[in-house]
Design a protein around this nucleic acid. Structure first.
Length: 780
DNA sequence: CCTCATATACTTTTT
DNA sequence: GTATATGAGG
């Protein structure tokens, strides 16, 4: 059987093989080629909806079944735990129950943790190192910045975190920074980076970036270790290769030089994580990086109708430097991509809400689309509110994907800090997080004392605190409370070590004795009950783990939380979160220049940013199976201010032949159009009416028409960054978001004295003011 | 040390 | 408009 792959099969033999190998059944020729090309590097360019996961899992099944490698000799990497889980399940389904293990199927990060635990000393860590999340990372950087005597206001920790992450994404250790980088962060970047890394080692901790950086560094500096893994991994498979960063690329290349049988699957047109360090260049350069590579294109799309594919293809064609693919489908033509403009964001939400109800009911000769087959995909999180508001008022079931995940919530992170502390009392970051939570009267001053003592005695903060208590260096209430806290901590830690109390019961005890649960029980804010609920869930989640340590490791790496509790609901999420998903009907609102493509993206990354935004648009359209509706609004409230915008430039790039322009309600006879469509329910009637109107609307001047109707030059009011307003002069009329209109009476640099019509005279910063329009300029 | 008010920022977010 | 960070005053 092991030779089956290499020998060309006659049709009959193929049928026999297929019967014996169910994973090969129904694969198209390109997919089959991707499965069977087991020699040398392979790049599978898999367009949206072309059965990429299918090919990837079939390939693994094929490798295993044909005896090319055993489960533990296959390295299969994904970006998300979800993808890893899916792959595992599908392989199992392909092969029946025979799959054992596959210990090296996982995310880049989880695999790196596994490797790093084995060789921790080579990176200066102990095998028990803890993994810091973004929150811990920022806290630590704050400490490093203030320790260096730098004004944390002018040079915020977030900024430093971004710079350091950027370096780690490119596998640049502190001692290997190129000269071009030394100016970063006011010239202090490199020194702060070194200090931060030193702190991490002292804490026996690694952040996400370190997981890869350390492993790459170990591979580069310890040939024997690398050789071992090279021998081990006879086959390497990579999912979503277009999303790899430089560190991941180096990691893969180092490993692939052993077996050379690396198979990367990806789509350059769906690279949307450049801002996180992903390098489209990795996939574009594949053939140079891996000489002799076979490139296989998966171009038959099984998801979307021809109009949808054509619209997406036409749009993405505007990007330069693509590898290029021609997606095709055997599906029936279906509906054109629908395009509609609205007066403002609220009307857009209203219209989409009505459309969704109509779709769910089944109108216009289309089969009813269940709510869970419908998605609204937005560019930015703040667009979601308008839809939530609307869906709530019309009683439409919806669910929001994304947002703060379970393990990122404050109460969960607090509880986790308690558990971390019980497992390892030397976890200083955890200590700082909870020592005064609930309030124990241990403030900044007490903490400072503890820090000093800890440093002097070379212990962790817990050690410092112990000393502070015995030496009575912290007075009164605080000292007493701290003593009790330390005592409790000692008990919990002993319990962990003994392992006599079950870890679930122990967790409950900890949350109870610490007063943390009580703190939320006494909290009268509306979110308190929800938080208590979450804490219960956390304890429940513990049940499926052997012990606390195992749970903590899991949580550090696995931050997902898709609990699906039945009930058909519309899905509301960002375009980024939608990658890899598909829906019969998709709504893409907010296609306005500045919002989508995002102004910031273009400001920061220029053409590269614009192209990534375009890929995001491409991802959005290709999520749709049968119906895709794009919309924009002429006016929108952004951070409480009205702003007007032009339709997105991406709209101009859609091929007109595959787009149907709908008439907005409100133009040509009021909003009855959309409502009437649902109300009559008669397939076709309102629809044909609309097409006739759309023809008028679709004349060459349609966009100008729309623009004129929708753009009453509102006063631009950009704030923050470089969006600062030019100076104001005495007697200028100004507007303040809180105090309303007023007149400038004095100015002193940024600070102005303004006499507000309603609120009286106030001192305010110029950046809070916008020039007030004269009576003629007021919108509407 | 705590609380309240005022100031400020704010895309996207696989791990 | 909201979430968070800081500073004054209690």
């Amino acid at each position: 059987m092991s030779d089956a792959a290499q020998i060309p099969l006659s049709a009959r033999a193929a049928a026999v093989a297929a019967r014996a190998a169910p994973w090969l059944e129904g694969l198209n020729p390109a997919q089959r080629a991707a499965v069977e090309a087991l020699d040398g590097p392979v790049l599978v360019l898999a367009g949206a909806g072309t059965g990429k996961t299918r090919a990837l899992t079939a390939r693994i099944a094929h490798i295993l079944a044909s005896g090319h490698a055993r489960p533990h000799e296959i390295l299969a990497v994904t970006f998300t735990n979800k993808a890893a889980r899916e792959m595992r399940e599908r392989i199992a389904r392909n092969l029946g129950e025979v799959v054992e293990g596959m210990p090296w199927l996982g995310t880049f990060h989880s695999i790196c943790v596994k490797i790093l635990r084995r060789h921790a000393e080579l990176a200066g860590l102990k095998p028990s190192f803890t993994i810091l999340d973004t929150d811990d990372q920022i806290r630590l950087m704050k400490q490093v910045i203030s320790a260096a005597g730098i004004d944390e206001k002018r040079w915020p920790a977030r900024g430093l975190a971004q710079i350091i992450d950027g370096w780690k994404n490119r596998a640049l250790a502190p001692d290997r920074l190129p000269a071009a980088e030394t100016g970063a962060f006011d010239g202090q970047g490199p020194a702060l980076y070194a200090a931060y890394q030193a702190r991490l080692l002292a804490l026996n901790a690694a952040d996400f970036g370190d997981l890869l950086l350390h492993v790459v560094t170990i591979f580069q500096r310890h040939e024997d270790v690398l050789a071992d893994y090279r021998r081990r991994f006879r086959h390497i498979l990579v999912d979503e290769y277009q999303d790899t960063n430089i560190a991941q690329y180096l990691w893969l290349r180092l490993l692939a030089q052993g077996s050379r049988t690396i198979c990367c699957v990806g789509d350059d047109d769906q690279s949307i994580y450049g801002w996180r360090g992903a390098e489209v260049g990795n996939i574009l350069r594949f053939e140079q990086d891996f000489p002799g590579a076979t490139v296989i294109r998966l171009e038959q799309n099984y998801r979307s109708t021809p109009h949808i594919l054509a619209a997406a293809s036409g749009l993405i064609a505007a990007n330069a430097g693509r590898l290029g693919k021609t997606l095709w489908t055997e599906l029936e033509e279906g509906e054109k991509v629908r395009l509609i403009g609205h007066w403002d964001g609220e009307e857009e939400a209203r219209w989409i809400g009505e459309e969704i109800e109509a779709l769910a009911r089944g109108t216009r000769g289309l089969d009813p689309v269940p709510l869970d087959g419908i998605a609204v995909l937005v560019r930015a999180g703040h667009q979601m509110r308008a839809f939530e508001d609307r869906f709530l008022t019309i009683g439409l079931n919806y669910r929001v994907i994304g947002g703060p995940r379970f393990y990122e919530r404050q109460e969960i992170r607090d509880a986790m800090a308690y558990l971390r502390l019980a497992v390892s009392p030397e976890d200083d970051l955890a200590f700082e997080r909870v020592v005064n939570l609930p309030r124990r009267g241990i403030g900044e001053k007490a903490l400072q004392t503890i820090r000093t003592l800890a440093r002097e005695r070379g212990t962790g903060l817990v050690g410092g605190a112990r000393h502070a208590v015995t030496a009575r260096l912290i007075g009164g209430r605080g000292g007493q409370a701290l003593g009790q806290f330390l005592q409790a901590l000692g008990r919990w830690h002993a319990d962990v070590l003994e392992g006599r109390t079950g870890h679930v019961a122990l967790a409950e005890t900890i949350l109870d004795e610490s007063g943390y649960t009580a703190m939320w029980q006494q909290d009268r804010t509306p979110e308190a009950p929800g938080r208590l609920e979450n804490l219960k869930e956390l304890v429940k989640a513990l049940e499926s783990f052997e012990n606390l340590q195992g749970f903590l490791e899991h949580v550090a790496l696995i931050m997902d939380n898709d609990s699906d509790d039945g009930g058909a609901r519309v899905t509301l999420m960002t375009l980024h979160a939608a990658k890899g998903l598909e829906f019969p009907a998709v709504f893409l609102p907010g296609w306005e220049d500045g919002l989508f493509p995002s102004q910031r993206s273009m400001d920061e990354s220029g053409l590269r940013g614009l192209e990534e935004e375009r890929r995001l648009a491409y991802v959005g359209i290709t999520r749709a199976e049968r119906l895709c509706t794009i919309s924009f609004a002429g006016n929108r409230r952004v951070y409480g201010q009205w702003q007007s915008a032009l339709p997105s430039r991406f709209i101009d790039e859609l091929p007109a032949a595959h787009v149907e322009v709908l008439t907005p309600p409100g133009l040509y006879g009021g909003g009855a159009g959309a409502a009437g469509m649902g109300a009559t329910g008669a397939p076709g009637s309102a629809f044909e009416d609309r097409v006739a109107r759309a023809d008028v609307y679709n004349s060459p001047g349609w966009r100008r028409l729309q623009t004129r109707a929708a753009a009453p030059a509102a006063v631009p009011a950009r704030r923050g960054g470089d969006g600062r307003q030019p100076g104001f002069a005495i007697d200028d009329r100004v507007f303040h978001s809180k105090f309303g209109y007023g007149t400038v009476i004095a100015s002193e640099g940024d600070r102005l004295d303004v006499d507000f019509d309603k609120a009286g005279a106030k001192k305010v910063l110029a950046s809070f003011l916008t020039a007030a329009p004269g009576p003629d300029d007021i919108p509407f």
